[in-house]
Nucleic acid binder design. Sequence first.
RNA 1: GGAUAGAUGGGUGAGUUGGCUGAAACCACAUCCCUGCUAAGGAUGCGUACUGGUAACGGUACCGAGGGUUCGAAUCCCUCUCUGUCCA
Length: 415
Amino acid sequence: MIDLKLLQKDFGSVSDKLLKKGVDIKLLDLLKRKNEELKSAKANYETLQAAQNSMSREFGIYKKEGKDISELKERVDANKIKIAEALEAQRTKQDELESLAMSIPNIPDDDVPEGEDECSNVELKKILTPREFNFTPKEHWELAEQNGWIDFERGVKLATSRFSVSFGMGAKLERALINFMLNFNSKRGFQEVSVPSIVNRAALEGTGQLPKFEDDLYKIENQELFLIPTAEVPVTNLYQDEILSPSQLPIKMTAYTSCFRKEAGAAGRDTRGMIRQHQFHKVELVSITKPQDSDKVFDEMVQTASDLLSALELPHRLVMLCGGDLGFGAAKTVDLEVWLPGQNSYREISSVSNTREFQARRAKIRYKDENKNSFVHTLNGSSLAVGRTMVAIMENFQNEDGSITIPKVLEPYIN
RNA sequence: GGAUAGAUGGGUGAGUUGGCUGAAACCACAUCCCUGCUAAGGAUGCGUACUGGUAACGGUACCGAGGGUUCGAAUCCCUCUCUGUCCA
């Protein structure tokens, strides 16, 4: 959630920055007005309530002293009616404000480039040179089927489109990757956690998936529970509504989970293969830091994901997302795109974001800063999406006959 | 699924014949004093959020969540959620 006090105090600069993310100024203006209305409604209610409270106290004293209370009772009853009205007014304002505020995205950092979509993203650097093929490299679905690693039809049979099944070496490679990534991240100081794949509404509101993006979530029937779209949700919300001590920070965690997404609005995109599935495996990094440390930890997380790709000998590049391509909760995002020779292009395989206070404010994650409580910064990033890593390995390590060499670092995990 | 007990501040845990209780006490924590050494003792402070005020200092709300009764509820009533124990 954006900082309403900041909006109130410095409307100009907040709205300028949110413009980068395509937010209508009228909406912000409305939010500001609602906030002011709520404040005055609240003040009104509290004044009435204060009077009520003091009369109630008098009431007790009168009774104790055996005084006549009928006059007091009249005043108190009259005030009571006003209170009910004031409370109702305040609640309406509160609800209006909250639903509006919850739908405003995070303020992007100053160094986020302008732009509407991925065309304006800025490449930061390339790591490793794509290999030269002396044959035409195949796309991963062809290789996957040829090697018997992945069965797309049977996935559809069991569930629906955008589901697949891994067999044999394919399944093994998947498991090897998960273990390799978790171990790698642990060595970089990220503590491993294992979390539920089902979470409640509060958790999803905390990280910003709700209320705006309910359409993309699988919901458990008749319950306020959802399948997680990313481990970011349960892991970040581990510390929901807590006040951490500064000595605990930074908290750096890594978790493996399945992720579930309806992919609403992605119709027709990446329909073939396993780039975009409804269920996919992902190893995630999540950090909770003091505000002054979040940039440093952000870099560490990008570096960890990049080094992971390098260890797997996968050429990739780092891309800074522009304002228009930035996710709802992110103040800043660096994507890692892996080279796919079959597609002859770089494709996203990891996304590292700093949400700054945005999620912390929603999820009420604070820390004791000297004597006052301040919001922490939360960061998340994939390291890596397992399915897409499989794709990258297949395409980059393919041989002319369609066989696939296993990257050296994975050998201990396979045998 | 049935029965029963419970849910209080960072922790343990009082308070349930409704009224100066936002909440005792202890622990933890912070600062200071004393002391002087792998200690102990003493003093003070110490919930969260919003809000008024330059400040001093005030106001409102919160005792699992949401309703209700009442001039007034942590305390009474209802619903829900969760936890413990026992039974199927």
